[in-house]
Amino acid sequence: MRLTPPARQKSEPTITLINVVFLMLIFFLVAGQVAAPVDRNIRLIDAASVSSRAPDDALAIRADGTTLWRGVVTSPEAFAAARLAEGSEVLRLVPARDLPAQDLLHLASTLRAAGAAEVRLVTERSTP
């Protein structure tokens, strides 16, 4: 009498799944480090619910009113002229939390006077 070995159950591809998840983790860790930080001296404004995306190119404003664009101190007028020349009608501002509201409104009106169709504020999203 000939005995046949018992049928093996096909194992789940857990190792493959673990490898894929690990590779995705590495990818997102690397991709998250590609974007340069705005400025370490700026603490973003809190907002409970904001429907905006991360800025492609924004003007950072320190609490003392200094404006930075691409890491270089610049004037709001020069920033607006350069962004409008690139074809962007929407200008983004990344204000420091401690920036007085009056200064922020003055800066926004300066950008609107320079030709911006819209001025958007970039804030920190808070989780409930």
Rank of each mutant, 00 (worst) to 15 (best):
K10I: 13
K10F: 13
K10D: 13
S11E: 11
S11W: 08
E12G: 14
P13F: 08
I15F: 12
I15D: 06
T16N: 09
T16G: 15
L17C: 04
I18K: 06
I18Y: 07
N19W: 14
N19H: 07
V20D: 02
V21Y: 07
V21K: 05
V21A: 15
F22T: 15
M24H: 06
M24E: 02
L25K: 05
L25T: 15
L25F: 09
I26H: 03
V30K: 00
V30R: 01
A31Q: 11
G32M: 04
Q33K: 10
V34H: 09
V34A: 13
A35S: 12
A35T: 14
A36C: 08
A36L: 12
A36Y: 10
P37R: 07
P37A: 07
P37H: 06
V38D: 09
V38P: 06
D39S: 13
R40Y: 09
R40F: 12
N41L: 14
R43W: 06
R43L: 10
R43D: 08
R43T: 13
L44F: 07
I45L: 14
D46S: 10
D46L: 10
A47M: 08
A47K: 12
A48S: 11
S49Y: 08
V50L: 11
V50S: 09
V50Q: 14
S52E: 13
A54N: 10
A54F: 12
A54K: 09
A54L: 14
P55C: 05
D56S: 13
D56T: 12
D56H: 09
D57R: 11
D57H: 09
A60M: 02
I61M: 10
R62V: 03
R62Q: 09
A63I: 01
D64A: 03
D64E: 06
D64M: 05
T66R: 05
T67M: 10
T67E: 07
L68I: 06
L68P: 00
W69F: 07
R70C: 02
R70G: 06
G71L: 03
G71C: 03
V73Q: 13
T74K: 02
T74L: 01
P76Y: 00
P76Q: 01
P76F: 01
E77Y: 03
E77L: 12
E77A: 15
E77T: 14
E77F: 04
F79C: 03
F79P: 01
F79D: 00
A80D: 01
A80I: 04
A80W: 01
A81K: 15
A82W: 02
A82C: 02
A82S: 13
R83Y: 04
R83P: 00
L84K: 05
A85S: 13
A85H: 07
E86I: 06
G87T: 06
S88E: 13
E89Y: 07
E89A: 12
E89P: 05
E89H: 15
E89V: 10
E89T: 12
V90K: 11
V90P: 00
V90T: 15
V90W: 04
L91R: 02
L93D: 01
L93K: 02
V94W: 01
P95R: 00
P95D: 00
R97W: 09
R97F: 10
D98S: 12
L99G: 02
Q102T: 14
Q102H: 08
L104A: 08
L104H: 05
L107Y: 00
A108G: 08
A108D: 04
S109G: 08
L111I: 03
R112E: 07
R112K: 09
R112Y: 03
R112F: 02
A113E: 06
A113S: 13
A113Q: 10
A114Y: 01
